[in-house]
Design a protein around this nucleic acid. Structure first.
Length: 422
DNA sequence: TCTGGGGTCCTAGGACCC
DNA sequence: TCTGGGGTCCTAGGACCC
């Protein structure tokens, strides 16, 4: 029988901040997303004060002040590095580890029959905490979907102390009856609404749903979820991540954009950023999508559009991608709207070494490769956008605001934490 | 003033092929 | 009155995830 553990970091971004600011322990803490706009992580204390996930921070400004809640800008350099430390620590506990997201990993425990799995989970938890400072929860079950539920239970219940083994739990049905259907992995708002209209409101009810009906309503994905709830594993461990299919860079604007000149600048900045990521992954793009949209939350004229364009030859050079992206945005841009967001997606990615040449290709690819390499290394050393194309403009407008970002404690020599020794 | 960003997979339908 | 069947590829849209 297959067996899985889901190891999930508790309030991950907040926990990363706390590792380097221990005085935040026990206090309400938030981490905010792009331009400090919305809440992307909350400590338990902040959850208890009633701050939901994903809400705009400005709506809770009074509450934040009243309870002296610490609100950090997000610091992805720090979170990415801390994540890597956690994932490396987990490697020793199983030969099969799937890094599922920045703060979660599935461990294959199939064959660990002579181990007390609850004890094992406690060892994992204690080791990760000691080595990285990050608290985690561990859920163990026969399928990934059930391991998710077990993990959720481990986090919520006080007596499970962060580890929960569903395989030895005597009254599974009682537990599944307490899990709302929308909390099941793979059931989003749309499915949850449809299911509840048919009286299916808990994980237990979903488990006993009719296969034909599920197949028709929710496709094969939904059917897999139901089978997984029944204990039949349909979702295997994916140990080597599949190659990336697309690279996106998009942003909401701090202030609405109302001119084509500004829109061109924004698109130029996003294209440059996406192209940088592309080169970092040693990939080239053969197609590109640009999109723009107005603010759907506002009661004003709405317009959104997207264009996909092909590159004659797959490329990773910013100037080439930029020419195409600007052509796309100019074709779509309509005067008279207040634009809220735009973005660029690089698609049909191929490894740089395997680019198919084109008979009519006139570009000097060697030269542009050297140019891109020079720009990337200058920017890596002296800071983002130190060197950039003129189309990106001279203002700082398109840079994300971080009013309260912590230091890159673990990835930048200039920002190492200092310790006073008496 | 202020409502995220970056992904994946599946399905249906159209175009096209023999 | 009769108007194929089977296959592939591509795209757009919808659903989900963290």
């Amino acid at each position: 029988m297959p067996l899985f553990a889901l190891v999930d970091c508790n309030n991950f971004y907040v926990s990363c901040e706390r590792v380097f600011s221990p005085k935040l322990a026990g206090k309400p803490v938030l981490v905010l997303g792009n331009n400090d706009g919305i809440v992307v992580a909350r400590s338990n204390e902040a959850k208890a004060l009633g701050i939901p996930m994903g809400v705009p921070a400005f709506k809770y400004r009074d509450l934040i002040r009243r309870h002296d809640i610490q609100a950090f800008s997000s610091n992805y350099a720090l979170y990415g590095d801390m994540s890597q430390r956690v994932m490396e620590t987990l490697q020793q506990f199983s030969p099969e580890v799937e890094v599922y997201s920045i703060d979660e990993a599935f461990l294959g425990l199939t064959g660990f029959t002579h181990t007390n799995l609850t004890d094992y989970g406690c060892t994992i938890r204690a080791t990760v905490k000691r080595w990285t400072g990050i608290p985690v929860s561990v859920g163990i079950a026969e399928t990934k979907t059930l391991a998710k539920i077990a993990n959720h239970h481990a986090k919520q219940s006080t007596e499970s102390s962060g580890v929960f083994d569903l395989t030895t739990w005597p009254n599974r049905d009682t537990l599944l009856a307490q899990v709302p259907v929308e909390e099941v992995w793979g059931i989003g708002p749309a499915h949850a609404r449809r299911l509840s209209r048919h009286g299916i409101t808990t994980a237990l009810a979903l488990r006993s749903a009719d296969d034909q009906w599920i197949r028709k309503q929710m496709g094969v994905v939904g059917l897999r979820t139901v089978q997984e709830l029944r204990g039949f594993s349909c979702l295997p461990l994916e140990q080597c991540p599949p190659p990336k299919q697309g690279i996106t860079c998009s942003r909401s604007f701090g202030k609405p954009v109302t001119t084509l000149a500004e829109m061109r600048e924004a698109v130029a900045v996003y294209t440059a950023r996406a192209a940088e990521k592309l080169r970092g992954e040693q990939l080239a793009a053969s197609a590109l999508t640009v999109f723009l949209t107005t603010n759907p939350f506002k009661n004003e004229p709405q317009y959104s559009n997207a264009t996909t364009l092909r590159l004659p030859v797959a490329t990773d050079a910013t100037p080439e991608l930029l020419r195409v992206a600007l052509r796309g945005i100019e074709a779509m841009y309509q005067e008279g709207f207040r634009y809220k967001k735009a973005g660029v997606m690089l698609l049909r990615l191929v490894p740089v070494g395997q680019v198919q040449a084109n008979l009519f290709d006139r570009a000097d690819r060697e030269r542009s490769k050297r140019l891109m390499k020079a720009i990337d290394s200058v920017n890596a050393r002296y800071g983002t956008d130190m060197v950039r194309l003129a189309a990106s403009g001279l203002t700082q407008r398109w840079r994300t605001r971080f009013t309260n970002r912590s230091q890159a404690y673990t990835t930048n020599w200039q920002e190492l934490p200092l310790v006073n020794v008496q």
